[in-house]
Amino acid sequence: MSPHNKLLEILNAISKEMTLKGLWQSTAPSNEALSSTQPFCVDTLTFCEWMQWIMLPKLEKMAKSGAALPSKSDMFSMAEEAFKRVEVDTKMLLSLVLKLDHCLRVTH
């Protein structure tokens, strides 16, 4: 399986898991919130919002277009900390974020 297809598979699994756990939102944050220049938009979005509205669409677009993928990824550390404040079981979601990090590191 190509790295781009593997990435799409992981992104799809993350979306499904977020939906299953009730972490997927039906309403997008404001354009102002989405325009943050801080890493992970920590000043305007929760980590789950950042994943749904920024990270997932950006990586999906890159994968579908065959663009060069990022070679460094350490979202797991941020996810691990952010999910401590989430009231649902995030073990599977953390595992998927770790798979995502690994996928991006090994494609180079």
Results as ranks from 00 to 15, higher is better:
Val106Gln: 15
Asp74Ala: 06
Glu32Trp: 06
Pro3Lys: 13
Val42Phe: 10
Glu87Ile: 07
Trp53Cys: 04
Thr90Phe: 00
Leu20Met: 05
Thr90His: 03
Leu56Gln: 07
Pro70Phe: 03
Arg85His: 13
Ser77Gly: 09
Lys64Asn: 12
Ala63Lys: 09
Leu69Thr: 02
Met78Thr: 13
Lys91Asn: 13
Ser30Val: 13
Asn12Cys: 07
Thr19Ser: 10
Lys72His: 14
Met55Ser: 05
Leu69Pro: 05
Leu59Gly: 03
Cys48Ile: 02
Leu20Thr: 01
Lys21Gln: 13
Lys99Phe: 06
Thr44Met: 07
Val97Trp: 02
Trp50Glu: 06
Glu80Thr: 11
Leu94Ile: 10
Thr90Asn: 01
Leu93Phe: 00
Ser95Ile: 00
Ser30Tyr: 08
Thr19Trp: 02
Lys21Pro: 04
Gln25Arg: 12
Ser2Ala: 06
Thr44Trp: 04
Glu60Tyr: 04
Ser77Pro: 06
Phe47Ser: 00
Leu98Arg: 12
Val86Thr: 14
Met1Thr: 15
Ile14Glu: 02
Ala68Gln: 14
Leu98Glu: 15
Lys64Gln: 14
Leu100Glu: 08
Lys64Met: 10
Leu45Arg: 05
Leu8Thr: 11
Asn5Leu: 14
Lys61Phe: 10
Lys6Ala: 07
Leu104Gln: 08
Lys84Asp: 09
Glu49His: 05
Lys16Arg: 10
Thr19Glu: 13
Ser71Lys: 12
Lys6Gln: 09
Leu69Asn: 10
His108Phe: 11
Asp89Trp: 06
His102Ser: 15
Asn31Trp: 03
Pro39His: 07
Asp101Val: 15
Pro3His: 14
Thr19Tyr: 04
Ile10His: 01
Ala13Phe: 02
Gly22Gln: 05
Trp50His: 05
Cys41Thr: 04
Ile54Asn: 06
Phe47Cys: 00
Thr37Tyr: 03
Ser73Thr: 07
Glu60Val: 08
Met62Trp: 12
Lys16His: 09
Phe83Gln: 01
Lys84Glu: 09
Glu80Val: 07
Asp43Tyr: 12
Val97Phe: 03
Ala28Phe: 04
Thr107Ser: 15
Pro57Met: 12
Thr37Ile: 14
Gly66Gln: 06
Gly22Asn: 06
Leu23Trp: 00
Gly66Lys: 01
Ser71Asp: 13
Lys21Gly: 05
Gln25Asp: 04
